[in-house]
């Protein structure tokens, strides 16, 4: 039963073209290791350097967004610097393109602003996104954003199509947020 269950689970992932998927508490150390594995895999498969760089960049920005903004966090009781954020990052390929998906819980209060930022980016073409990036590079970070805007613009810049995203309500205070980028 055990092998049957997990074989089905793995086959489901394989059929979806998933190279790897991480779900759980994400730290900067895990991010580094996953990023290295991703680059090695793509390099071994002789993916061109431009694509490797784009996929890696989107992976890093998405993962660091989870680490910074996930509403599902585990903090040490002492209130010290140890804090872990939960979320998922999935990388795969379909139709000869790579895709990177992230998912995490966000507070209902943060949903409108995140939605507005992403919709704004969806409505821009490549030149507008580049100009917006250059403009935001000179701006001081927005209060409490810790740099989210520039990270999202970087993701939009590397994406081959507009970013796809969705929110599903969990309860009155939170949503599950999900973003998919194709390269």
């Amino acid at each position: 039963m055990l092998a049957k269950y997990y074989r089905a689970f793995k086959e489901d992932l394989d059929q979806r073209g998933i190279i790897f998927s991480f779900s759980g508490y994400l730290s900067e150390g895990i991010l580094y290791s996953l990023g290295e594995a991703l680059r090695q895999k793509m390099t071994l498969e002789e993916t061109d350097i431009g694509t490797v760089k784009k996929v890696f960049s989107v992976f890093i920005e998405q993962s660091q967004n989870i680490i910074r903004y996930s509403a599902e966090k585990l903090a040490s009781d002492s209130g010290g610097p140890i804090e872990l954020s939960s979320g998922m990052v999935t990388i795969g390929s379909e139709n000869n393109r790579f895709f990177i998906v992230c998912g995490n819980v966000v507070l209902a209060n943060d949903e409108p602003r995140l939605r507005e930022r992403l919709e704004r980016l969806q409505g821009m073409d490549k030149d507008q996104i580049k100009a917006y990036y250059k403009e935001q590079l000179r701006e001081a970070p927005e209060e409490a954003s810790r740099g989210a805007t520039i990270g999202l613009i970087e993701i939009a810049r590397r994406a081959s199509d507009p970013i796809e995203f969705d929110f599903e309500r969990i309860d009155p205070d939170s949503f599950f947020f999900c973003m998919k980028v194709s390269i």
Binding site: K53, F56, S57, I60, E61, Q64, L137, R138, P141, G147, I150, G151, I153, E154
Partner: peptide, 16 residues
């Protein structure tokens, strides 16, 4: 060889 978006902000700050 690579930098993330928050490093890009810091680099811009140095260039300014």
């Amino acid at each position: 060889a690579y930098f993330n978006s928050s490093s890009a902000k810091a680099l811009m700050n140095i260039f300014l």
